[in-house]
């Protein structure tokens, strides 16, 4: 049994070259245009904008400028987090989303029917419909490459090793050392998703960030969609019970009124 594999993304060394995006598209044969429509952001050098059904890797450009000489660029190569407790896998009604032997989360395109429940369930907004297949798609962590002992295309292409691929336990050790190194240099650095006791049981694709998670478009406390299931079901059942009782009370009152006053009745209509 292979050990859990994943990515450690050190955002401090990302240069925004988007080689990972290109490598991902090339290996996975993803179209450049969304259903034939070219979409440009128009407000950023980040022209691919977000993760979706045809962008399984996305280098986010965060432009923090207060003035012409006071600012910085943050770059982060974003991808599916391959959550240990995955919301998408939890809700998928067709069984298309599976956990692999590498502890990664993969959508089987030939099983998915495009119901889009997984899109709404993912706390990171990773999944979307691929216009070519009509099914939900996202990063597979190059499952086909892993099966034959190859490294995923994105990390292989990354020229600065911002994206590091390997066994999760080893990556965590490496990440903590890097955080210590940066903190010693006075850089505010934190790991996001590296804690196996943390949100969603830890993320098999985790990040080193130098600002708040929200700045990178990441939720601070990602949660499973099922957190509301019991409460929502209870409230719905209570609402149904109240309506049922009201209906029965109304029927009983009608009967009592009829017994007391002889009742009305007859004739169709009664309206307009």
């Amino acid at each position: 049994m292979p050990e859990p594999m994943g990515f450690f993304t050190d955002t401090t060394v990302c240069i925004g070259c988007k080689a990972c995006e290109v490598a991902c598209k090339e290996w996975n044969q993803l179209p450049a245009r969304n259903g034939g429509v070219g979409e440009l952001s128009g407000d950023s050098y980040d022209n691919t904008r977000k993760l979706d059904g045809i962008h399984w890797r996305h280098v986010r450009f965060i432009e923090q400028f207060k003035g012409p000489y006071d600012g910085r660029w943050l770059m982060m190569s974003d991808v599916c987090k391959h959550c240990v407790q995955a919301g998408c896998l939890e809700v998928c009604p067709t069984g298309a989303i599976i956990r692999t032997e590498f502890d990664t989360v993969v959508i089987q395109s030939d099983v998915c029917n495009g119901c889009r429940a997984c899109i709404a369930a993912c706390p990171f907004g990773v999944i979307d419909i691929n216009p070519v297949s009509g099914t939900a798609q996202k990063c597979t962590l190059c499952y086909d490459r892993l099966k034959v002992g190859l490294e995923p295309a994105c990390s292989k292409a990354c020229p600065t090793d911002s994206i590091q691929f390997g066994a999760i336990a080893e990556l965590r050790t490496r990440a903590h050392k890097r955080v210590d190194q940066l903190k010693a240099q006075g850089v505010k650095a934190e790991l996001y998703g590296a804690d196996p006791q943390g949100a969603l049981g830890g993320l098999n694709s985790f990040y080193l960030l130098v600002d708040e998670p929200e700045v990178y478009g990441l939720p601070r406390h990602p949660q499973l969609p099922s957190r509301h299931l019991a409460k929502s079901s209870t409230f719905s059942a209570a609402s149904a019970a109240v309506l049922g009782v009201l209906a029965l009370v109304g029927l009983r009152k009608r009967r009592m009124d009829e017994m007391g006053g002889g009742g009305g009745g007859g004739g169709a209509g009664g309206q307009n």
């Binding site: 809700v91 706390p123 949660q223 969609p225 099922s226 509301h228 299931l229 929502s232 409230f235 209570a238």
Partner: peptide
Amino acid sequence: SVTNRPIWADSPWLGAL
């Protein structure tokens, strides 16, 4: 409610409603 979307997943009352 059993999603992670704004409004829908921010309240457990939608089913009852």
